[in-house]
């Protein structure tokens, strides 16, 4: 896989497509795309981590819940994550350790505020390599 994600045009908001050799990698890359919308990830160091454990009724909901959990941690704790190690994964359950650091206005330039991940145009595609699509409200 030569790229982790693409940003797709949408009139008011931003949609992303993330790729992976397996679904957990596509989920990790979707999270990377999310934080790439917020800031330049090259400026972010792996100083701390947070563990996330989630369950959802189906894989699409799991993806939305995963991304919304990360948005929540960014909003409340001010953490920008850049690497996502998903250790357990199936269609309704996810366990991950996410690495990053707290926002430091002297080195991080925040680009976009992301309100939430939505279900609109949500796609989880297992064919032709794994691919997920999410629209963020920004």
């Amino acid at each position: 896989m030569d790229k982790d994600f693409d940003i797709v045009n949408h009139t008011a908001d931003v949609s992303i497509i993330a790729y992976g050799t397996n679904m957990s990698q596509a989920f990790a890359n979707a999270a990377k795309a999310l934080f790439n919308l917020i800031t330049e990830l090259d400026d972010v160091e792996e100083i701390l981590y947070r563990d996330i454990k989630l369950t959802a009724p189906d894989q699409e909901s799991l993806l939305v819940k995963w991304l919304n959990e990360l948005i929540y941690l960014f909003d409340v704790e001010g953490i920008i994550f850049k690497r996502f190690n998903i250790t357990q994964f199936n269609s309704t359950r996810l366990k991950a350790r996410s690495y990053g650091e707290k926002v430091d206005s002297s080195k991080h330039k925040l680009k976009t505020g992301v309100k939430a991940a939505t279900y609109h145009m949500l796609k989880v595609d297992k064919d032709n390599g794994c691919k997920v699509q999410v629209l963020f409200d920004i």
């Binding site: 008011a12 939505t118 279900y119 145009m121 409200d137």
Partner: peptide, 8 residues
């Protein structure tokens, strides 16, 4: 314009 779910 194009939103999510509802149009804006």
């Amino acid at each position: 314009h194009w939103g999510y779910g509802f149009p804006i």
